[in-house]
Write a protein that binds this DNA or RNA. Structure first.
Lengths: 290, 290
DNA sequence: TCAAAAGTGTTGGACCTACACCCATGT
DNA sequence: ACATGGGTGTAGGTCCAACACTTTTGA
């Protein structure tokens, strides 16, 4: 990009202080997958999805739980800000991340107008992180409603999102509306009630939705598992995220290409040992897109 | 979201002027599909993809072409700002839109730090719009490079994006890098050279990519066509976007559910008349997701 | 008559679903 | 011995690529 002489002259005179600007922040929604307790020597532990929340120390929403985030300054890109924020606030340095969505509603922050760029983060870290707690994620559908017209339809879904750990249980209700009339599709997620700060529950919902959608055609799930895993662990991970049961034989065939067998096996369990696998980093090497 | 008393007190004292903030803008990338010229009475016109650009009237980048955009103020959401901008600047009121990506590099705007939320817009409008011109979009791959390691691979692709109309031809070269090592996937789009303002060519590339990806599993393509169309038109639309030829019989079967036959037929062509179809607004009514 | 597009039918193969079945282990 | 998970095989169906073929029109 060249800058013309006319541009140079303009830039010397330019001052951006005359415009009233919103603040810009980033928010990071961090997920992991952990084993549920299991005391049967035969049974394998089931997995559960967890999200990381901090208790807010300062207003607004003091004492309420929120995902982590920070305002951006002029010296860092969005991505850099996000990485620094995660490192400084919770001590996490290696993780999967992708930009999720930018939220810009007018009243999302009571202080002032804040536009927030949200990021989806996944980690396989099993240790506790600083400055916050992991919450189990449970999604429950309360109702579904489909109305048909001859020029389209509308769907409305009410879901309850329960975030809980041993001490705390946070319930939120979201209403998802899809209207579809002659190509005018509108999708709207409305917070009916929440026990989280800001619109953070909406961000968490978006994030879960993104993970689900990407499960089918990417290797995103592997970011939630340790480097070595059994195929049953992997399958369980998919099942938890999709909320369905999968058939074992078929699952093994489907993920065959994404995975490389190791010459290691589990032991110490009351059943046949299982082979350990790792992610195949070359699985989509020959994909010609982007 | 309740606001506590402590919060209320805090809010009265709060001033956001002490932080240095970036500016926030939205940018709208508008596409349409039009017929190429065709003088053979037998042949059907081929479609081509076009993007809408304006010539910048003010610095920076005066006189250069850019996609439309505007800074956001405190009284409108991102979405509202985008819709107003499109209406006021080019006179378009009905269109498909979705949020594309938020760009936050430090030097993307020479005036000051600007975070820009980009939107992908599609229209079937065949009329000219105000304050700008339509440019044919041609994407050409210059080179592909795959390196394999035993812990992953990296792919590098160089593409040339040519935006042209009868008077102007704008060429840009982009380098797309994908690195994949042990779950650390990084994707990076770098502008090698461009004749457009800002990083707008990058946004256009992201937008084209999004359309391509959504073609397969959504009805996004219908937003580029008039309400009534023939299946060959629809197929041609897919072909232009994907850059490949499709088999007629198979295509008809695949999109069968997305489409409703009308009792109308084309005529005036040196071949069998073709039935007109419209979009089936209920095609994914029973999809249980989101 | 003929070139071009509209539209249907068929065949072989790839893949998916569902289920049955055997293997290996620690207690 | 046995409950539990690990792992393989297979029959039936669905879907898709490829290609052949018929129909209809305006000049």
């Amino acid at each position: 990009m060249e800058i013309s002489n006319q541009d140079k002259k303009f830039l010397e005179l330019y001052s951006d202080s005359e415009y009233q600007k919103p603040s810009v922040s980033i928010d990071a929604i961090i997920f992991r997958m952990v084993d549920k307790d299991c005391n049967n020597y035969r049974k394998l532990p089931q997995k559960k999805l967890q999200v990381f929340l901090t208790k807010r120390k300062y207003p607004p929403f003091v004492g309420q739980y929120a995902i982590i985030g920070t305002f951006i300054d002029l010296n860092h890109t969005l991505n850099e800000t996000m990485k620094l924020c995660v490192k400084n606030k919770v001590g996490l340095e290696k993780f999967y991340n992708e930009q999720l969505f930018t939220f810009g509603e007018k009243q999302r922050d009571p202080r002032t107008r804040v536009v927030s760029v949200s990021y989806l983060l996944l980690t396989s870290a099993q240790e506790e992180l600083e400055n916050g707690e992991w919450f189990d994620v449970d999604l429950e559908r309360l109702s579904t409603n489909i109305s048909s017209f001859n020029d389209g339809y509308s769907r409305e879904k009410t879901v309850k999102l329960i975030l809980s750990n041993s001490e705390t249980k946070l319930e939120s209700i979201l209403k998802i509306k899809i209207e579809n009339k002659e190509l005018e599709t509108t999708k709207d997620v409305e917070i009916v009630s929440t026990e989280l700060a800001f619109d953070h529950i909406k961000m968490i919902y978006y994030a879960i939705d993104r993970i689900k959608n990407k499960l089918e055609y990417t290797d995103i799930a592997f970011n939630l598992l340790p480097k070595k895993f059994t195929l049953t662990e992997l399958k369980n991970c998919y099942e938890v995220l999709l909320g369905t049961k999968l058939l074992d034989a078929n699952f093994r065939r489907k993920i065959n290409g994404l995975v490389l067998p190791l010459n290691e096996f589990t032991s110490d369990k009351g059943h046949r040992p299982s082979q350990l696998f790792k992610h195949n980093p070359n699985w989509d090497k020959d994909n010609d897109e982007l």
